[in-house]
Design a protein around this nucleic acid. Structure first.
Lengths: 111, 111
DNA sequence: TAGCTTTGCTACTCAAAATGTAGCAAAAAT
DNA sequence: ATTTTTGCTACATTTTGAGTAGCAAAGCTA
């Protein structure tokens, strides 16, 4: 499979830039959502699918493979977990949560 | 145009969750890349297109409209700028940069 | 001020990615 | 042993993004 690997950039970026490779990985549908949901606790494919509500099994499968090969998640006997790296990324994404709440106010006052 | 608005979620997410709306917005191709490049300084469409190297004008145009309507960027007489909100998001994304460098080491040692 | 260039797009066509649904083999439950 | 659940995969369709071409408006140039 062709993956976003640092130094081997993806989707048109010829920069060889690790950050852009990360943006590409996280910038695919459900990537960040999956990391977010997995942080609630390790779980099976099925349970993760339920947590993500509307994700299709095809996409979930694809994202899981990519994220696994990118060392953000790992398979265990009973499903999928965040790796240490995955938990680090989660912590970097976490501040977006409260930011998004404030952001919503812009929409409320401008609509 | 149909946009990711908090409370009016997008791409299958029926949660009404602001964070997921944000994930959806940022999780489109080039969204984070554009924010990153715009932080180098306000610029015109053309210059931004050059900074992003391989982005197509169609996609750049679409992303710019979305990000503008989401209050992350704004138009000025001489192009596009990050808004205060946009600069806030940039600051939240910034830690990913050094993280991505460490991440790259995983790939080097496992390939 | 007439022509030439650059800018900021839009309209198209085509390729890639994501969705939706069906279904199937393996494991687990009954 | 049979049924159910799990973890996918295959396939068809829709949506998204890329890759041109080109055009109207602004700016520069002679």
């Amino acid at each position: 499979m062709s993956l976003p690997t640092p130094g081997k950039p993806v989707r048109g970026s010829k920069s060889g830039n690790h950050l852009m490779a990360l943006f590409d990985l996280l910038g695919r549908s459900w990537s960040m959502g999956i990391i977010w949901r997995l942080h609630e606790g390790s779980c099976t494919f099925r349970v993760l699918q339920d947590r993500c509500e509307s994700i299709s099994p095809t996409t979930l499968n694809k994202r899981l493979k990519e994220l696994t090969q990118s060392f953000l998640i790992a398979r265990t006997v009973d499903g999928y977990t965040l790796t240490d790296k995955g938990r680090e990324i989660f912590l970097l994404l976490k501040p977006l949560e409260s930011w998004a709440r404030d952001w919503a106010k812009e929409f409320e006052s401008n609509e």
